[in-house]
């Protein structure tokens, strides 16, 4: 079981929850199980071809999965998977 940390921008799709747990041996499996539990979030995580959207970064522990096989990166029991989407807010700094 891995712990998933859900960023504020995606909590509207998880009934406001900031954490979730999901089963899986790889990041891909963990995120798929998470998306199955919250169907409205799937569209925000995957594009039309089922690839992870490039504005969402996924970290296992403090490492970006990009350098560790992407969705095939292994997840150990009890590890933390952090979703980090791009946020652009500047408190309305308009330039």
């Amino acid at each position: 079981m891995a712990k998933i940390l859900i960023p504020t921008a995606l909590r509207a799709f998880t009934d406001g929850k900031s954490e979730a747990e999901a089963e899986g041996k790889t990041v891909g499996e963990v995120i798929a199980a998470f998306a199955a539990a919250y169907p409205d979030i799937a569209r925000h995580l995957y594009d039309e071809e089922g690839r992870l959207r490039s504005y969402v970064n996924v970290f296992v522990g403090d490492e970006n999965i990009r350098g560790f096989g992407g969705l095939d990166a292994p997840v150990k029991d009890g590890e933390t998977v952090t979703l980090v989407p791009a946020i652009a807010g500047g408190g309305a700094g308009r330039a």
């Binding site: 807010g89 500047g90 408190g91 309305a92 700094g93 308009r94 330039a95």
Partner: peptide, 9 residues
């Protein structure tokens, strides 16, 4: 400083 909003202030 690009933008003088919440961060720029």
């Amino acid at each position: 400083i690009v933008g003088t909003g919440g961060l720029g202030a």
